[in-house]
Nucleic acid binder design. Sequence first.
DNA 1: GTGCGTACTATCCAATGGGAAGCAACTTCC
DNA 2: GGAAGTTGCTTCCCATTGGATAGTACGCAC
Lengths: 121, 121
Amino acid sequence: MTESTETIFEQFPGGVFPAACSSRVLLDHVMSKWGVLVLVSLTDGPQRWSDLRRRAQGISEKMLAQTLRTLEGDGLVHREQQPVMPPRVDYSLTPLGEELAEVMVPLLRWVGRHADEVIGT
Amino acid sequence: MTESTETIFEQFPGGVFPAACSSRVLLDHVMSKWGVLVLVSLTDGPQRWSDLRRRAQGISEKMLAQTLRTLEGDGLVHREQQPVMPPRVDYSLTPLGEELAEVMVPLLRWVGRHADEVIGT
DNA sequence: GTGCGTACTATCCAATGGGAAGCAACTTCC
DNA sequence: GGAAGTTGCTTCCCATTGGATAGTACGCAC
């Protein structure tokens, strides 16, 4: 945020976004349909599997599992399993995940504000 | 940006992101794998079909056409066809598109900065 | 011992996305 | 005058992805 006057093109010379680079991989994880919703849901504090299912309305269990696994692998989400029965698993943002959420939330907010105007119904 | 201390949950009560609402539709358009790259490429000024193909490395012609059509339909991208031969079509951001790009670029920049650390190779 | 709740996991099928080729319309080269 | 080239798409086919459903593990209540 301290460098918000720079263009992205200093990081991607020539304005070319190379196909096979780590940025693209992370971008795909983070900007995926469900990745965004899960990350942003977690800005509200640690949450359980069933909380996330409810918040990211419409996500299938398969995709929730896959998304959480990916974000955990990227070090953005922390998974904490408690050995109680019935099972209880809490998901939360890591410090890195919170950093990402900080730049993601303004975008979500913009989308929320302009959606009706753009999409119509 | 003036309201950056708000959480998104004021816009989405209960932290629930409804499945069938205009926000989700716009979010899918805008956060799609190729939508992001096209929008951000255009922050560098008007560009032609072949410019965009080069910048969003790896995009197929089919997906470029589809992405541009969608973003144009949302009023984020402006398409200007000149009746010359061989054909020349210029794409640029609308004012709304530029507004969106302003909140999108920080995210891209964050991803660019942290990608290696997160993904590794 | 049957059924329930929680957090997954597996399987099948429909929808989506990518690659390659085709097309339109005019110019330029031979 | 015909063939080939240029640019921005469109169409077809097939591999990959995503969603719905059912199943699993585990303890507990009844």
